[in-house]
Structures are given as C-alpha cells and as structure tokens.
C-alpha cells in the first residue's frame, strides 16, 4: 500500500506547510510585510518546549501550551518593539527590520542558551507508528492532519463570524478606510501577529517533533518553506497560503521519490527552479485573492 502511505505522508506534510504559510500570510495581508523573523517565532516555540520539559518537567500538554505561548509572545513583542515604530516607513525599511529582528533573536538564543542543538523530549506518541489498511505511518502525521483541520476551521470561524475577524479582513483589503470605520490599527495588527505567533507555535510542535531537537537556526528551513509556499499559492489570501502549502508538500514528496539518490541533496534547488518557472507564467500565484497592495501609512 505504497500509495496510501504516500498520500497520508503528503497530506500531513502539506498540512504542516499550510499552517506555516498561513501564519506568514496573515501578517502580510494586513501589514504588507514579508516577515523574515517568522521562522524565529517557531524556533523560540521550540525552546519553549525544551525549557518546559527540562527545567519545569511539565507534562506534555503543558509543554504544548508553553511552546505556543513562547511563540505568541515573541511575535507580539517583536511587533510592539520593532515593527510598530517603522510601520509607516518604507516597505524596505520594514523588510530590513524583520531581518534584523530575525538576526537578533537567533543571536540572543545563541548567547543565552547555546549554539548547539538541544534535545527536546517529546511524548512517545510522536515516535509511534500506526498501521492503517496496511499503510504504516507515524501517529505524528495523523496528529498534524487533525490539528490542521481543526485550526483551519477555528480560524475561518474567527475570520467570518467575529467582529475582530471582520475588522482583520477589512484591514487586509483597505487599511486606512478600515481605520476610518473606527477600527484601531494597532488592534488588528497586534491580532495578526498574535495569530501568526500561534500558528508558528503549533507548527513548531510538529516541526520539532520530527527531529526532536532545537537549535538557534531551526527557524530558517520552515521560513523558506513558508515563503515559497505562499508565493506559489498566492500571497494575497489565506486560501492561497493553504493551497500553496499543500502543493509544496506534494512537490517535495514527488521529488523525494523521483530524484536519484545522488541528487537528493539538491532537492531544494530543484524545487526552487520549478517555482520560479511557475511564477514567470503566473506571478500572482495559484489563488489571486483580494488583498490589495496598499501599504500601511
């Protein structure tokens, strides 16, 4: 049952990538910021897991809460301290700021913890496998799929049914006009960063779950995945991010199977070339979406 295994694997990978991309796009939608510090929220989330397990000896559910809270807090604080003051400056100023935040967080962890990787003790369920109609798959993969589905449902309820969600959608469309409706700019932007941090935190659990360790540059790979997935799917709507995540997961798994062993270390390079070629044909990504390019001023 190679096919079922491949399918579960691809869907779970796609789910993880979709969560990652979604966190990036939410902030992009409102602030028009490609957040280079996003990977670091995930990295700090990983350290949250590590410290809650090793220092506090917390049970697994508390670890999860700690990890997610660490990511949310980092995201929120970075908005408060760095992004808010440069918000009305140029787009490049914001971009460079986010890179500086990323470098700062990496080096802060380097100084305060260690340059070396730390093992994160995770509950056994993360390493167990399960047999579904002959397909052997890690339980972790099923957890990712389940979590992603719940998160997507909750998030779309938040966006569609609550006033905050309405305000956030409006702000992604026309920021200044939204403010003129009486919606505080800081509220929607902070909310976007908090949700972005939440998604980074949730992704962090599964990302760390694969290698069971965390180091200061853990955030780099997921950041790149989120970047590429969002440009493929379309940066202009949450739907684009989700679609991009799944497409990228599929591409990754297909290349993993089809590339000869000697070329596997170049997989990222291959994926990237495919993506650039695709973007030349369709620069706006798969889903066009309604976000405008208006910048926050």
């Amino acid at each position: 049952m190679m096919n079922l295994e491949f399918m579960i694997n691809t869907i779970s990978l796609g789910s993880l990538y979709a969560l990652l991309s979604l966190g990036l796009v939410l902030v992009f939608g409102i602030l028009k910021l490609v957040n280079f510090a996003y990977g670091e929220y995930l990295m700090i989330g990983g350290y949250g897991l590590y410290f809650s397990a090793t220092v506090l000896h917390a049970p697994w559910w508390a670890m999860v809460v700690f990890g997610i809270l660490a990511a949310i807090l980092t995201s929120y604080l970075s908005e408060l301290a760095a992004f808010r003051p440069v918000r009305n400056k140029s787009a490049n100023a914001l971009l460079v700021t986010s890179f500086a935040v990323s470098i700062f967080l990496q080096n802060a962890v380097l100084i305060l913890v260690s340059p070396r990787a730390r093992a994160v003790p995770l509950p056994p369920i993360f390493s167990q496998t399960v047999n579904i109609y002959g397909a052997v798959t890690p339980v972790r993969n099923l957890l990712i799929i389940g979590t992603t589905i719940s998160v997507l449902i909750l998030l779309s309820l938040l966006m569609k049914k609550t006033v905050l969600g309405l305000a956030m959608r409006a702000a992604s469309d026309k920021f200044t006009t939204t403010r003129l409706m009486g919606v505080p700019a800081n509220l929607v932007i902070s909310a976007a960063f908090v949700i972005s941090g939440l998604l980074a935190g949730i992704s962090s659990i599964f990302w760390i779950g694969r290698s069971a360790s965390v180091d200061p540059v853990t955030g780099a790979a997921p950041l790149l995945i989120a970047f590429i997935a969002t440009v493929v799917g379309g940066m202009h709507s949450p739907a684009g991010a989700v679609v991009g995540g799944f497409v990228y997961g599929l591409l990754f798994n297909v290349l993993s199977i089809t590339l000869p062993a000697s070329m596997i270390s170049y997989r990222d390079a291959f994926m990237f070339v495919i993506v650039v070629l695709f973007l030349l044909i369709r620069p706006e990504g798969i889903i066009k979406g309604g976000y405008t390019e208006e910048r926050v001023g």
Partner: peptide, 8 residues
C-alpha cells in the same frame, strides 16, 4: 488625532 478616533 488618529483616524480611528474620528468616527467615535
């Protein structure tokens, strides 16, 4: 003032 205060 801030834009969001206007409507209030």
């Amino acid at each position: 003032g801030k834009p969001e205060a206007t409507v209030k």
